[in-house]
């Protein structure tokens, strides 16, 4: 089997498993919805700057919780099976794509629910949504690799958080700036710089993940 068909099979397997249990999806959605609601009840009204920051913090924690599971749920026996049938690149690509899909779905629902509950004016809705998409993709690419690392190291939640926060902060700062530009309705050409840097970082992260994962996955 070549790489693309391997990725396709693994991705199908991930989605099928998720569809059967619906545990991660429902769990994360409920997590996001209840966090938004807790924030709403404690803040009531927020200024635009806080609105934006709060949204990203909610999304950040939801993403860490969602993606931390991606390697934990694999049992020892299933990993042994993967070693024989698939290449490491196929596994990490399938995981990244699956996490991207999950995060995009989750971020979209979170954004809709968040803006319904917290009223706030967004100047350029489509640019804001683009920022959310780029944010979802960035979270997925970075956290997938970190969760692979954390899963090899006794797999606790603390480790996942301390390893991923410093790595995601530069991306998060750029994303918050980009979404702030969108909220203020600035001209789209102003934000091109941020979009370019974010795409470049994501490309670097994916390439490094592909290079490093083969060293990581086998004990």
């Amino acid at each position: 089997m070549n790489l693309i068909s391997q990725v396709k099979y693994l991705l199908k397997k991930e989605i099928l498993l998720e569809w059967r249990s619906k545990y991660a999806l429902n769990g994360i959605l409920l997590y996001v919805v209840s966090t938004v609601f807790v924030c709403y009840l404690s803040f009531r009204v927020v200024p635009p700057l806080v609105w934006n920051a709060l949204f990203w913090i909610i999304l950040l924690f939801a993403a860490i919780n969602a993606i931390a599971k991606s390697f934990m749920q694999e049992s020892k026996g299933r990993l042994l099976y993967y070693y024989q049938i698939a290449s490491p690149q196929a596994i990490i690509i399938a995981k990244i794509i699956y996490n991207i899909l999950l995060m995009i779905l989750m971020a979209t629902i979170a954004l809709i629910f968040y803006s319904v509950v917290f009223k706030n004016d967004i100047g350029d809705v489509w640019l804001y949504y683009l920022a959310v998409l780029i944010g979802a993709i960035s979270f997925s690419t970075v956290f997938t690799m970190i969760s692979a690392i954390a899963s090899k190291a006794n797999n606790n939640g603390t480790l996942m958080a301390i390893l991923s926060f410093p790595v995601i902060i530069p991306l998060l700062m750029l994303i918050i700036k980009l979404s702030k530009n969108a909220m203020d309705g600035l001209d789209r050409s102003v934000s091109l710089n941020e979009i370019g840097v974010l795409c470049a970082i994501n490309a670097i992260v994916i390439v490094i993940s592909l290079l490093l994962f083969p060293y990581l996955w086998r004990d």
Partner: peptide, 30 residues
């Protein structure tokens, strides 16, 4: 902290090397 969380020496060396290489380009961006 990652290093101190793993007991087995070879595994510790390998995993921390992977994290080190992964974090470096992000530090450069930072």
């Amino acid at each position: 902290v990652l290093r101190s969380s793993i007991d087995e020496e070879q595994k510790r060396a390998k995993i921390s090397a992977v994290y080190n290489i992964f974090a470096y380009p992000i530090m450069v961006v930072l």
